[in-house]
Structure formats: structure tokens, C-alpha cells
Amino acid sequence: MLNKINLLLVGVGGQGTILASKILAEVALLSGLDVKMSEIHGMAQRGGSVVTHVKMGDEIYSPLVEEGEADIILSFEQLEALRWLSFLKPDGEIITGTQVIEPVPVIMGKAVYPSGIVETIQGRVQKLISLDALAVATECGNAKASNVVLMGVLARRLGFAKEIWLKALENKVPTKFLEINKKAFTQGYELV
């Protein structure tokens, strides 16, 4: 494992981006690493673009991942993966759900949702995983757990023990959603 990992989690308000970041930060904490997580909210419930920065390693100073610094971008929505592409390191990796949430300018017919986003990203990065996390989560019994499916995929890339992830889920997810989230996580973990 690298001695410092920079991650960017991106999505749309309501997709669970912030919860996913908290789980990730908890994993770092449980693993004895220094960790910082930064978010901008306030507009998060109102359909805006949401980005959180998670940095872990021996000692972390700035809580922000800047352009060209992300080892991994975990995206819960296609367009958001594209929007934050310039934050990826040249040899960085993108994991994205293929869900589409149209922004208001698109809905109003004032802008166009780009087509072929996954292919565009594919042509520019060395490592890309894209999957229909929404479908996987729906199969598990709750579409809202698609963020955790993608966390499962991420977990495989990061190399912490699976038990630590499950423990982090227990610490951060409300009890009544825990079982379904564990199922969704495992699905993602086994998937790729």
C-alpha cells in the first residue's frame, strides 16, 4: 500500500457521498492511519454537486485533494466522474457508477448531458471500473445502498482487511440499514 492515499468521492446531493466518505475515514482510523476528510455541504440536499476529499497516511496536513493529486476517484454518477477527471493523478484510477442524474440545466433543455461519458473517460485514464451499482443495490433490496456497492469495489483496490470495512459499516450505518448495506458491500467486494 502507498504511504499516502488521496481519494475524491463525488456524486449528487442525496446519493450518500458524505456517508461513504465517513465510512472510508473510519476504515483509516481503525487501521491506525492519520486521516482527514473534508466536505462542502449546505447545498447538498438541494441537488447540487457534492465532493468530499479523503486523505490517509502517516501524517496528513492539508485536508484537500487538489488537481492532479487523486489516486482514486470514486464517483456515484457518470457526469460527476467526468467533472472531476482533472483531479486524477496521471496513473490514477476511476471507479464510477453508471447512474445518470440530469442536472437542472439539462432538464430545462438549456444544456446537453454528454453522451458516451464512460468511453470518454476510458480513453483518458489507465484504470477505469464502471458498473451499474444501482442495479446491484436494487437486487440487494435497496437502491439507496448503491453507494456502498461502490465502496465494496473500492475496498478491493485499497487493501484493508474486509473485516475492518465491515466494522466501519457497523460504526457508521444506522442499525436498521446495516444488514442490507453489508450485503451491498459484499456484492461490490466480490464483483470486480
Binding site: 449528487v12 447540487g48 457526469l79 442536472p103 437542472v104 440545466p105 444544456a111 446537453v112 454528454p114
Partner: peptide
């Protein structure tokens, strides 16, 4: 890159 529509709060 294609032009990326903004996602303003609404």
C-alpha cells in the same frame, strides 16, 4: 472533453 453542464442547487 465535452462541455460539462453545471449542477446548481435548486
Amino acid at each position: 472533453l465535452p462541455s460539462i453542464p453545471a449542477r446548481p442547487p435548486v
